[in-house]
Simulated assay, not measured.
Amino acid sequence: MASNRSIFEQLLDKYDTALAKAFFKGLDAIKSDVTLRIVVERLERGDIPGAVAAIQVEREAFSGLEMVLAEAYNAGGISLVENLPRLKDPEGNRVIFRFGVRDYASEAFLRDHSAELVTRIVEDQKVAIRQALETGLSEGRNPRSTALDVIGRINRASGKREGGILGLTSSQERFVASAREELLSGDPKLLRHYLSRQRRDKRFDKTIAKAIREEKPLTAETVTRMVGRYSDRLLELRGEMLARTETMIALGTSRDNAMRQQIDNGKVGASDVKKIWRSAGDGRVRHTHRVLNGKAVEIDGVFHSASGAVLRYPGDPQAPASEISGCRCHMEYKVDYLASVVRRAA
């Protein structure tokens, strides 16, 4: 029988892949539906709000993301109850553990968290787009080039747009803007700083080194390609972190709710359940979670991170982003089944 850790890892791998795919599919839909001419015309009039609206970043584009999140939530709760040990009541009947995705806590989570997640993605996108358009026009780039810097340029081989800032957070869009400034500056110091960016495409490093050595500026076309690849790599990171974090939130929350359902249904006593924090057990685990590894609390207890944060379980959506972003820990629920049987018989 597979261990709880391996079962959890399988779910984590499956659904963070599916969530990332749904996120990128939503972005591709937005990019493919953009009418470039309208965006450019509005920029030519200086109508930045109109240009942002013309790109049509809407929550409906991410409906697939919400559906996968619900699937991950359901799978997490089902996997927990399916792997609880077999137990018989005092009369010898088998105790059946089931997970109900339509209970109040589950429906509230799926409704509220999904809505908050997609709203956050959409609103932050609009901020990032507005920032990019304002920067492009203020720096004197023509409206068409500015629009393409946002929505990306079509790759003739794939037929898809690449290199834009759609999908990036507003903070990441600022990274792209500053990277472009460095590459266009011709300043050796700023070019060297660009070479320190971890998400740059290192295939261009020799080109930049030559520009520094010969003290010649990079061409605008070359800079566009470099910035495009940098944007793509930041977007890849964005998708990975978003998917991993949201999968952890869905699985962690559903597993906790699944155990609480068994308690509410009288199948397990609350006092007989312990929560044990289990880290992923490798060098990528954040220090605050390595310290928590193996610590146990009651079902209603919380874990106190060295950062000062309080977590009910790994992926707790109420915890700070710094404690859940990219987390791969999981919660082990240890039940004193003998005590529960004795209590039911009393």
Rank of each mutant, 00 (worst) to 15 (best):
G136V: 05
Q56C: 10
A75D: 03
P188I: 14
L338R: 14
S170L: 05
L117S: 07
D256K: 04
R290S: 14
A22I: 02
G269A: 05
R343W: 07
A339H: 01
R344Q: 03
E173L: 00
R278N: 13
G315R: 02
A2S: 12
R203V: 13
A209V: 06
W277G: 04
V34T: 01
D316W: 02
G77D: 05
L12M: 14
S106T: 01
K267P: 01
S340L: 03
L251R: 07
G76E: 03
A147L: 13
P90K: 00
L110K: 01
I208D: 12
F204T: 09
L234A: 04
Y337V: 03
V39H: 09
R229L: 05
R192W: 10
A280M: 07
I121F: 05
T135Q: 11
T222D: 02
L235H: 07
L69C: 01
T224A: 15
R203H: 11
A157D: 11
E236P: 08
R255N: 13
G46E: 05
G92F: 00
A177I: 11
G308V: 02
Q261T: 08
M259G: 10
L11W: 03
K210T: 15
K210Y: 10
R284Q: 09
I121Y: 04
A54M: 08
I208R: 08
V52I: 01
R45M: 15
I48R: 00
E41V: 08
M259V: 12
E91P: 05
V150S: 08
K25F: 10
D282V: 06
E116D: 15
Y230D: 07
G152Y: 02
R229W: 05
E162F: 11
T135E: 15
P317G: 04
R197P: 03
